[in-house]
Simulated scan of single mutants.
Amino acid sequence: MTDRFDDDPHLSRQMVALLQQLAPVEGYNLTPLADVRLLRSNRPLSRTPVLYDPGIVIVCQGRKRGYWGDELLVYDARHYLAVAVPVPFTMETEASAEEPLLAIYLHLDFTVAAEVLLALSEQGSDEHYEPKGLYASPMEKPLEQSVLRLLEVLGSEVESRVLGPALVREIYFRVLTGAQGGSLRAALGRQGQFGKISRAIRKIHTCLGEALDVEQLAREVNMSVPTFHAHFKNVTQTSPMQYLKSTRLHQARLLMLRKGLNVSTASLQVGYESPSQFSREFKRLFGLTPSDEVIRMQQSFALPPPAAASIYVSSH
Rank of each mutant, 00 (worst) to 15 (best):
P226A: 14
P226W: 06
R4K: 11
P304H: 14
L151R: 11
L18H: 13
A77H: 05
V116M: 13
H107K: 11
P290A: 12
F89R: 04
A119F: 01
Q237D: 14
R248Y: 05
S121Q: 05
T177K: 07
I201E: 13
N234W: 10
G189Y: 01
P9W: 10
G181M: 03
A211M: 03
I56N: 01
G209H: 01
P165W: 00
E157D: 00
Y75P: 03
M91W: 00
L176K: 03
D3W: 09
H316V: 07
L303G: 00
S41N: 05
I56T: 10
M223P: 02
L188I: 12
I204S: 00
G189D: 04
E71T: 10
A82V: 12
Y135K: 09
M223T: 10
Y105T: 11
S41F: 03
F173T: 15
F278V: 14
D213F: 05
S198D: 07
Q20W: 05
I204R: 09
Q299D: 02
A136R: 03
R4N: 11
L134E: 02
F89D: 12
R253W: 01
R199N: 13
R219K: 14
S183Q: 12
E157T: 11
V313S: 14
V87Q: 08
Y312N: 02
A84F: 08
L167G: 10
R65N: 04
A211D: 04
E293D: 02
V59W: 00
T265N: 07
Q237E: 15
V158G: 04
